[in-house]
């Protein structure tokens, strides 16, 4: 524990004294607050609509303060937070090798796992802190701009969102560390990490294209197909009439659409970014289709989002376990 703490503390000192980290963290904060500002603009617009009422159609719904975090968790966090996590980890092990400090480090009374565990713990602490600063600053800005204080339920939602975001950033920190262990070059590790992030971001789109190819719709006439109807009169005469058969073809098409959707959903599960976006949108309570029309409670949302969170957590643990195992097996 002692040496692990020494390694972790040095990692923290390196991170928080690094101009690179502070610059990216600053940018991340600006983007976070900018996202919330956009969310507030939307919130104000919805509030105006709500207060003005509607002359036709259903009455506009009263916006919730939590809605202002939509752009933050929908766009900024999946991209910027992942980049920040990669920047914190892409050279965590490879830099020690490149600078040839690993040999000296290991000549001290320290076990190998204390090095990688120290770096993991420090990395998770750093991403959790960065996110806490971003969430706190964004919440402060949202309260200041709207003049509305969050309810206890909204605070719970934000806390769960923060926790999910830490796990999401933890995944990319783990990915960066894994690449840093596998690859000999820090830059190759960073570029590979960014490519993986781009693939994750594009997964729904790419899996959609794949689904279209795997499950094509072959008919040229998208409308109604024809068939033959036969009827026999009381005198025994047979009347033959060409009629349309819309249901059979539509069912077939629907079946293909369902298969496509299922395929996209299954493939997207492997994208940590998609898992996080699904988790975040569920926790914000913006994606709901209830028979009652009532918004689900935070606990109902958490229950729905738990699957995404568990998948994300499993992927994160897989990254850490992979990094640990490979590092322990490697020679210097």
């Amino acid at each position: 524990m002692g040496s692990m703490w020494d390694i972790g503390r040095k990692q923290l000192e390196d991170s928080f004294s690094s101009k690179k980290f502070l610059l990216i963290l600053g940018l991340f904060l600006v983007l976070s607050m900018g996202s919330v500002y956009m969310g507030v603009e939307e919130y104000n617009q919805q509030m105006e609509n709500f207060e003005g009422g509607s002359n036709y159609g259903p009455a506009p719904e009263k916006p919730s303060l939590i809605d202002v975090f939509g752009p933050l968790v929908g766009l900024n966090l999946p991209l910027a937070a992942a980049i920040l996590a990669l920047l914190l980890s892409y050279d965590s092990i490879s830099r020690e090798r490149e600078d040839e400090t690993i040999e000296l480090l290991l000549s001290y009374p320290i076990y190998r796992d204390e090095i990688i565990n120290g770096k993991f713990v420090a990395g998770l602490f750093t991403v959790a802190t960065a996110l806490l600063i971003a969430f706190t600053a964004s919440s402060g800005l949202a309260i200041y701009l709207t003049g509305v204080l969050p309810t206890a339920e909204q605070i719970f939602r934000l806390v769960f969102l923060w926790q999910g975001s830490v796990i999401y950033m933890g995944f990319f920190f783990g990915l960066g560390t894994l690449l840093s262990v596998i690859l000999n070059s820090s830059w190759r590790a960073l570029i590979t990490g960014l490519v993986v992030l781009l693939l994750f971001l594009a997964t729904p789109f790419l899996s959609g294209i794949m689904a279209d190819t795997i499950y094509p719709i072959e008919t040229d006439n998208p409308g109604v197909s024809t068939g033959v109807s036969r009827s026999v009169s009381a005198g025994g005469a047979v009347a033959v009439q060409e009629v349309g058969i819309p249901n059979r073809e539509e069912n077939k098409r629907q079946e293909i659409y369902d298969k496509r959707e299922n395929f996209v959903n299954q493939v997207s599960k492997f994208s940590a970014t998609t898992s996080f976006q699904n988790f975040a949108s569920t926790m914000l309570g913006t994606d709901y289709e209830g028979e009652t029309g009532l918004k689900p409670t935070v606990w109902e949302n958490l229950s729905s989002a738990l699957g995404y969170l568990i998948f994300l957590l499993s992927e994160t643990l897989l990254m850490f376990t992979g990094s640990y195992t490979l590092f322990m097996r490697q020679d210097l």
Partner: peptide, 16 residues
């Protein structure tokens, strides 16, 4: 760890 405590080491390409 006990063995490492007894040995000081200067690698050929010393880096700090």
């Amino acid at each position: 760890k006990e063995i490492k405590k007894k040995i000081g080491y200067l690698p050929s390409d010393i880096s700090f």
